[in-house]
Structure formats: structure tokens, C-alpha cells
Amino acid sequence: MIRHGEAAKSPTDDDPGLTALGHQQAERLADQLNVRYPAGRGVRLMSSPKSRARETAEPIASLWQKPLEQLNDVIEIPSPEGISLAQRGDWIQAFLKSSWSDLTITQDTWRSGIISALKSIETRPTNNSDRADTTLVFCHFMVINAVIAEIRQDTRIAQFRPDYTSQTRLSLDDDVLTIVELGQERHAPHSIR
């Protein structure tokens, strides 16, 4: 699971793309991924439908000439009803200090959908005829934390603070997700959207 690059935060745009720095981060990530997975052999690319995740994945998809498949289940957490886009940042910051047991029904369904999607990746149809041993999923801070909390069976929302373009490695064996390696953490505070 790869967190998107730095997004152009906005109280009025519910789908901001990357900043100039975010695009640079995506290019550096593509270079790193190409070293780890030369020419993308055996790798499948999937992304949240949000612009910031797709834009983070596009440099490596272009380099490898591979399709970037949309995975709707790894979209960012939905805000509670009545929370405006301008209030979302404050809600997220408060939410990070709460528990997964505080989710609304919509958010609980979102979280369950993420886990189900990850467990079913190997069986999902693909546009690519190559066999994939590895799937890179470009997604969001809260998605990654939801998965790590589920694996750890930990009720805390904030499991760790994945940095922009950090790579959290998971393994799936017999329908069981395990943590191989947490991604690089960001130690300087930044707003989560």
C-alpha cells in the first residue's frame, strides 16, 4: 500500500491533485519502484479513484506501460453526514484521537470494504495478461491505518503516520493479511485530508 504524494489541500475541492512537490515525490517513487521491481515484471498497479492517488501512480504506470486499475474500495474515509468539506480537516484531526468503534455505519462499511478488497485482489479480473505476484495499491493515510488496525486488532485510529509516498508492505496468505513492513513515517506534523 502506497500513500499518495503531497496533495493540494483545499477547503473547496473534494478531489485535489498533487502539488508540485507531490509530483516530484511521485517521480522519485517511480525511480525507487523501478529499482525494486525492474520493468514492473510481475507487478499489478491499482489506485484509489481520487486524483492525488492516481497522479502518484501515473509516473510508474507510464514508465512500465502498465494499466492503472481503479480500486474504488480504497478511497479515503467518508466524512460523517453534516460535515462540510471546509470542516473535514478539523474532523479528521479529532477523529485520529478516537477509536474504530466510533465509526458510523457508512464508515464501518468503508473499512470492511477495504479489507475485503485487499483479500480479493488476487481473484479480481485484470486487463493485463501478465501474472502478478505483487500488487501496488495507491491510496490514503486513513486507508492504510484502517488496514494496520485490522491486522493488529487494535481499536486506535492512528496506528502510525505514513509519510507521503511511503510504502507499507503486506502479505496475503490463506485469506490472512499480515504486516511485512510499515512504511516510512512522517515525524513533522502535517494536515491529513
Rank of each mutant, 00 (worst) to 15 (best):
L45T: 02
V180A: 10
I121A: 08
I121R: 00
P49K: 03
S99E: 13
P162K: 00
R169N: 15
W110C: 03
L85W: 03
I83K: 01
L45N: 08
A30S: 11
A117K: 03
R36W: 13
N145R: 04
P16K: 01
T104Y: 07
G17E: 09
L63S: 10
A26D: 10
V74R: 02
V137K: 03
K119R: 05
P80V: 04
Y37P: 10
L177A: 02
A132T: 09
L21G: 11
V180M: 09
A86G: 12
S51F: 11
A158M: 15
M1S: 12
T56R: 03
Q167L: 15
Q25L: 08
D14V: 05
A132Q: 06
H23C: 12
I148W: 02
A132L: 04
K9M: 14
A132R: 02
L177G: 07
S171Y: 08
L29Q: 08
K9L: 14
G22K: 00
T155E: 15
M46S: 11
R88S: 07
E150W: 00
L172G: 03
A39S: 14
F138H: 00
M142R: 02
R152I: 14
H190D: 13
F160I: 01
L29R: 05
Q167P: 05
V74H: 02
P162G: 10
E185W: 04
A158P: 06
R52A: 08
S171W: 07
P49V: 00
Q93P: 11
S112T: 14
L71N: 06
Q153I: 13
R36D: 14
L136F: 09
P125T: 12
V143W: 01
R124D: 15
I77D: 15
T56S: 11
T12M: 03
L96K: 03
P162V: 01
L45K: 05
I157A: 06
V43Q: 01
Q107N: 12
V35N: 14
T106M: 11
K97L: 05
P125I: 05
P59L: 09
D90W: 04
P16G: 08
R3F: 03
I144N: 00
G89E: 13
G40N: 00
Q70D: 13
D133Y: 11
H140A: 08
I105V: 15
L63K: 01
H187S: 12
T165D: 09
T109Y: 04
S129W: 07
D173M: 13
D175A: 11
V143N: 03
A8W: 11
E150R: 00
T56E: 06
I114W: 04
D130R: 01
D73G: 06
S51I: 10
T168P: 07
D90M: 07
R54P: 06
T56V: 06
L103M: 09
R152T: 13
P16M: 02
R161S: 11
G22Y: 04
G82D: 14
S129R: 09
H4V: 01
V74Y: 02
G82S: 11
K119T: 11
E181I: 02
L33V: 09
Q87F: 04
I144G: 08
G42A: 07
